[in-house]
Amino acid sequence: MTCDLNLLWPKSNYDALTPSEITNIKNLIITSYNLGYYNVVINFEVSESLKLPINEPSKLNPIKIKEIIDISKFPDLKVFTRLTVIVNDSSKLINLNKYQNYFDLIAIKPQTEKSLQNSIINLNIDLISIPLDTKLNFYIKHKIVGKALEKGIKFEICYGPLISSTSTLTRKLMISNIVQLIRATRSNGLIISSGSKNPINLRSFHNIMNFFQTLGIKLNHINKFDDNAEKALINGRLRINSYKQTVMIDDNVNLYDNSKDEENNVMANNYKKRLNDEDIGQRKKLHS
């Protein structure tokens, strides 16, 4: 079972899609399915300054899977959603926990070393995707990365810009950054994903690993990449379905089935809202 954890949503805000963009994303899902990726994740990437509508929970997730594609036609295909936030200053992101029940995966894209360090310590996330196609203004250290790996956070490598870029500069930067990331993580906890908007830039898993072998990944590490992607996906699904990602009560819950999430969220949300209100009340008493 191979997973592609990053197919880009064409817009970075809540505007509606045009018909050609909808057919494009359909084509994107089906091409990656035919290349052997049975679990596909659509990625909604936003900057931290965009205001997400907290008060209307039904509008939080713009990706409605049932409206885009009929999954029952394609045997074994499963589609999930993911939120990625581009971070400059991690102190603004305290509210990230509120969005957890509406997306299957939650990831961040740190731009500075400080935001990387802070978000590893403070936030509850599944994935970190360092922007490898730009020149990094910091040096990836093993000490910081090791902390993330202890918590079970995975690091993502997007191969999309490597193929689509026409300038040789981005290719050079990407290869040097990937080698740096492999050195810092000692090739543990890494994930490969496409990160492209166009079906032309998709490649199958083993083809990309052929290229990555020349960058210093050993043959016996290749299966780890596949396992890590699955682990990250299970981690994200457990956040919705279980208590603190450890205890599940119902036997009949299928972890990979996300069609009934909307109904369940209403129940869970009311309970959480009440808890939050009580918490705030107690804190106010303490301060006054």
Partner: peptide, 23 residues
């Protein structure tokens, strides 16, 4: 042969037609 298999996924166009070359 590693040099050849590594470059096959990075090919995008042949004779002006957009393709995926799959080893």
């Amino acid at each position: 042969f590693h040099f050849v298999t590594a470059t096959l996924p990075l090919i995008t166009t042949i004779e002006g037609r957009k393709v995926i070359v799959n080893c």
